[in-house]
Each structure stands twice: as C-alpha cells, then as structure tokens.
C-alpha cells in the first residue's frame, strides 16, 4: 500500500533522511524505532506531506503522492497523529472529529463519530474544549481519534504512548492492538520503548542518523548488533 523509494531529506547541512526505502501493507502493523533525532518524525512528515523530500518517491496504492498537497493525501487515506498533540483549537472534542470526518471523507456520519469516541474512551469528554480542557492521555487519544475520523487506510502514529503513566499506557496499548482489525487500517507506529514496540508489532524498522539500519521481525531486529549499538552506544536511550 505504501511504498517509499530512497527518500532523502536535507535540512541545510543536516541529512535527516538518507536513502530510506520501505514497504507497508494494508494488513501491516509496523514499528518504527530509533534514537532521538534519528529522523522518524521527518519520515512521517514526508509521507503526510509536511516536508518535501530532496529526493525519492512516495507511492500510495501505486499513485505517486509527492506532488499532492497535505489535504489531498489525507483524503486518499493517509491519517497521522503528531508527537506533540495538536488538537484543533477553539473546537470541542466532537467538533474536532466532525471537521476531520467532513473534510477527510466528504460526508458526516454521527454514529461513526460516536463509535470512534467510544473506542478511544472520550465519549464523556466530547463537549470539552479540545485545546484547553484535556489531560495528556486524552489529548493523545484525541490525536488517534482525529486520524481515525478521516477513515484512513494507513495510520501514522507518532509516539502516542510516550509520556503516559503505566496504567494509561497499558490501556492505550490494548487499544492499539484492537485498532488494526477494528478499523481495518495499516499502521506505522513510532515508539522509543523497545518492550512496548515488540509487544504490539511483529515487524520493526530501525532508523539511525537518517538511515534505515534494520527491517524485520522484532526478535531478529533487536538481536542485530548494529541496532544494539545504535541504542546503547550513541544515544543511550
């Protein structure tokens, strides 16, 4: 479904991504790990259209989407969350989903919104102001909900678990493993914590200094010496 062909991104002198190629299928749930500043978020930005790569191609269902603007990619079915939650200001939780659904899918379906709200456990918060009246866990849940509201075929989740306390995290992980089949969506998920990622994803990719250094089953990847080195040697994360 998603095919990245040797993506390169430079910010001035910094090579944020170098020759990254990746395939994600519609049944996949792929973990993307790597130390701070490895380029994980940048990769999401390239896929969703916030950053234009200096080289390479992004194919979504065999269509080259590089020239397509953000909103068009969203309408094609690429949904994403932000590492730092970005609720739509001045709107309630429900209105956030409504806008996402109306513009992402072209029509409004209240029962679908109720279903999503229920799934991310925000039903009783639906009339809260999204930007000012939510706790962190709820903001993260709203990020996922907004992305789901556009009926995505591919979901890009950027560290939705980080910063949560243990109980919230466990709940969220349960939710994530359900996401996949409940909403019939392929998932690419960024996560720092190796244990977390191996418990939800069978397949894991590792980015380090902008390069994709491993791609395989979680077990195999985390035994790879180069991966271990990147985690212990350089960033200590």
């Amino acid at each position: 479904m998603l095919k990245l062909e040797s993506i390169n991104v430079r910010f001035g002198g910094l090579a944020a991504l170098q020759d990254v190629s990746l395939l994600v299928d519609s049944e996949d749930m792929v973990g993307l790990v790597g130390p701070n500043g490895a380029g994980k978020t940048t990769l999401f930005n390239v896929i969703s259209g916030l950053v234009r790569p200096t080289g390479g191609r992004v194919l979504f269902n065999n269509i080259d989407v590089l020239r397509k603007p953000l909103y068009a990619r969203a309408r094609m079915g690429i949904g994403r969350t932000f590492q730092i939650p970005q609720p739509m200001h001045e709107l309630t939780v429900r209105e956030n989903l409504l806008v996402a659904q109306r513009f992402g899918t072209g029509s409004v379906n209240q029962s679908k919104i109720d279903e999503i709200l229920d799934f991310v456990r925000l039903s009783d918060k639906s009339d809260r102001n999204a930007a000012t009246e939510l706790a962190l866990t709820e903001l993260k849940a709203l990020e996922v909900a907004k992305a789901l509201a556009i009926q995505p075929k591919l979901l890009l989740l950027d560290e939705v678990l980080s910063g949560l306390e243990t109980a919230g995290k466990r709940q969220f992980m349960q939710m994530l493993s359900d996401l996949h089949w409940r909403f019939d969506v392929g998932i690419l998920i960024i996560e720092h914590d190796i244990e977390t990622i191996s418990s939800v994803c069978k397949r894991v990719c590792v980015l380090n200094f902008g390069k994709l250094i491993a791609d395989g089953t979680a077990d195999a990847v985390f035994k790879d010496p180069e991966v271990i080195k990147s985690y212990t040697g350089e960033s200590g994360a």
Binding site: S48, G49, L50, P69, L70, Y71, A72, A74, R75, G79, R80, F82, Q86, P87, M88, H89, E90, L91, E95, N96, L98, V99, A100, R102, F103, G104, T105, V108, A131, K146, A147, A149, I150
Partner: peptide, 24 residues
C-alpha cells in the same frame, strides 16, 4: 457551518487542520 469550524481551527492549528483533509 463545518467550513466555519474548520476556519476557526485553522488560526491556531493550521497543520493539524490540513492533515485531516482541509484545503486551507
């Protein structure tokens, strides 16, 4: 309208609005 809601949201969170399909 929905347009109004999207426009309101665009002020402080334009990227967040665009990634859900709003042609700002």
């Amino acid at each position: 309208s929905h347009y109004g809601a999207a426009l309101k949201a665009m002020h402080d969170s334009e990227d967040a609005t665009r990634v859900v399909g709003v042609n700002s």
